[in-house]
Design a protein around this nucleic acid. Structure first.
Lengths: 140, 140
DNA sequence: CAAAGTAGTCAGAGACTCTGACGATCGTCA
DNA sequence: TGACGATCGTCAGAGTCTCTGACTACTTTG
């Protein structure tokens, strides 16, 4: 079986679990597309252009998604002190609150996977995917 | 780093490579969404409902995508001899021609990955993902 | 200080997905 | 065998996400 599909299947499973859990915890106003941008915001804020590049979407699409995240209270935009053209997208109150909820679900799913695969295979998977990232992630 | 994202990165890389190669070979009228349905058509044809279930989309969405694949000549719809309500979606001429092209690109990408990881790790990756599929793919 | 480049927005369009409702057909159980 | 619930696929309408192209404001470079 094609390795692409083999990677996609657990990815989708993880994503579905995280969104189901977030929705259950009251964070039902965030979508996968928004989360893929949100996930890439640096601790001290990121520029829209950088987020777009990392998420591999156009800056227009990123702007559209950040607008929604901002309206829902997950992020805020502040002027970039080093460049008057730019603004920094930063994680706001509601966004900061959602992060540990999502992290807990990820940990739960990873624990299930580890239970099925065994700790050693789980560690191998992590390590191999890390190495694979070296040649498949242009923005690592 | 979160395993979900770690799975997603090489998946997206593979997908992008396959679509770039298909477009270069003249198959520039197929989209990722269409391909995710196309990929799941059984050798002797599949029902729309089954495709929708496997791709985890609604049957309306699957119908929309199959309409486009049909118009572009990748698939055809024939009556299901065992059930007058249903029709079978089958791979048509253009679809059959595209498959080896896509398979060659997948093989090329997998060879690059094997060169980077080593044959042994590549085999481990395949094996581990296969086991992971047991608990993450409801339609295996 | 002019020219070239970069950050972000506006406008418009297309692709994909969903919910809800529907007619046609199937399978089952009285 | 015939009524009834379930299933197959479609139509209609709406919302979400993405893109291309063009633009303003600001920065960097020569």
């Amino acid at each position: 079986m094609n390795l692409g599909l083999l990677l996609f299947i657990p990815y989708r499973s993880m994503e579905a679990r995280v969104f189901a859990g977030l929705a259950e915890a009251g964070y039902d106003d965030i979508t996968p597309a928004q989360a893929r941008v949100f996930q890439r915001i640096a601790p001290d804020g990121s520029r829209l252009t950088d987020l777009a590049e990392q998420a591999q979407i156009t800056k227009q699409s990123a702007g559209f998604l950040v607008d929604q995240l901002e309206r829902a209270g997950y992020v805020e935009r502040v002027p970039d002190p080093t460049d008057a053209r730019a603004r920094l997208v930063r994680i706001a109150r509601r966004g900061a609150e959602a992060i540990p909820v999502a992290a807990a679900i990820v940990a739960e799913v990873e624990a299930e996977w580890a239970a099925h695969l065994g700790k050693q295979r789980m560690a191998q998977l992590h390590q191999i995917l890390g190495r694979l990232r070296e040649i498949t992630d242009p923005y690592q």
